[in-house]
Amino acid sequence: MFDRYGPPEVLRIAELPDPAPGPGEARIRVRAAGVQPFDVAVRAGRMRRGPGHFPHRVGQEFSGVVDLLGDGVPGPVPGTAVLGSTMLDGQASHLVAPVADLVVKPPELSFPAAAALVAAGQTASGALAQLGVTAGDVLLVHAAAGAVGTLAVQLARLAGATVIGTASPANHGYLRGLGAVPVPYGDGLVEAVRAVAPGPVTVALDAAGRGAVAASVALGVPRERIGTIVDDREAATFGAPVVRAPRSPVRLAEVVALAARGLLTMPVRAYPLAQVARAHAAVESGHGRGKVVLIVEP
């Protein structure tokens, strides 16, 4: 929880009564919870719709085990492993969620691996669908080594697209392993992409900000096929869409099924719940590959 906006150190662990599920809901004993930039922005007070009161909780994604059902709810039966989305209460030992929003966790995935897929999986798959990425496209993914970028690269490759990904040089080998052609971000990005692209870049996904939309325009990508998930201002400047697909348990289940088959991978950087401030700082730094996840219950 946090009692004021501020740096990661404002977060604290509090003892609260266990929530009770209502009609259509299940209570989840959380095993792992993802940390994402949205959580950081809420805690820091950068969201236009931040908490209107304090103290306040945080967290959007979880995996765990059903331990109690609301009245009249037939299932999933207690003991079922699930994952899903929530709103500002996911980094906790227990939460309640609508049963309709839950996805059953395949046994092939650990709880941390499952939690790592929730937000990034829905965001990446939804963005690629909105941008119409198909075989034959040359896709440029900005911040390709991050959580959303990691899944966007792999999903686009599964669709048959050629993928170019921006990342620091330390992550270039990682991107090659995912099937992307890496380029360094920063000065000279446009020239670096042109040097490796097999043809015109036809679509771009911005998970980085910091001029990524402008660089995509300079590369000649049609503006309607430049989607950003982070930079509303630059999108408005250049007439590019902001791609924030709504949450979809169906779309999440599709991503989870691919991961269970070994067709998608997501590196996990795990922190115990007691180190929640360190986990938030890691996300806020903007560095590192894959997904930051809190281990709530080993």
Rank of each mutant, 00 (worst) to 15 (best):
L109Q: 06
G59D: 07
P267V: 07
R31D: 09
P51Y: 14
L158M: 13
V250S: 06
K291C: 08
A114D: 05
R27D: 05
S85G: 12
H94P: 00
G45C: 08
R247K: 10
A124K: 10
P198F: 10
V77T: 07
R233K: 08
V213W: 06
A143F: 01
V283E: 05
R223Y: 10
H142G: 11
G239S: 08
L95S: 12
R49S: 15
G290Q: 10
D67F: 03
F238V: 04
G45M: 02
P272R: 10
Q60N: 11
M87F: 15
D67H: 11
L205S: 04
G165M: 02
G24Y: 08
G132I: 10
V201H: 01
R247W: 08
V256T: 04
I229R: 12
A257D: 14
K105V: 09
I13H: 07
G209L: 12
A156Y: 13
T123H: 13
L11F: 09
A81F: 04
G64L: 05
Q36D: 15
P51L: 05
G126N: 09
G136W: 08
G160N: 02
A145M: 02
H287F: 11
S110H: 02
R210L: 15
G70M: 03
S125G: 00
L83M: 14
G22R: 04
P37L: 00
E25F: 11
I164H: 04
D89I: 06
P241S: 00
V40C: 04
L102H: 06
V293Y: 07
G121P: 04
H56E: 13
V250G: 11
L83R: 05
L88G: 02
Q154T: 12
G188C: 02
V58K: 07
K105G: 00
Q275C: 00
T123E: 10
P51C: 13
L189I: 07
G84Y: 03
V73M: 10
A44S: 12
Y185H: 08
A215T: 00
A114G: 08
L258D: 06
S248Q: 14
S110Q: 13
G188Y: 07
L205F: 09
V217P: 03
D206C: 01
A207E: 10
A120R: 01
V77G: 01
F2C: 00
G186P: 04
G160L: 02
G90H: 12
A260C: 12
V203Q: 05
S93N: 10
G136C: 06
L11K: 02
V255P: 00
V66S: 10
V213I: 15
R225M: 00
L117A: 13
Y174F: 15
G199W: 13
P8G: 09
A113S: 09
H172T: 06
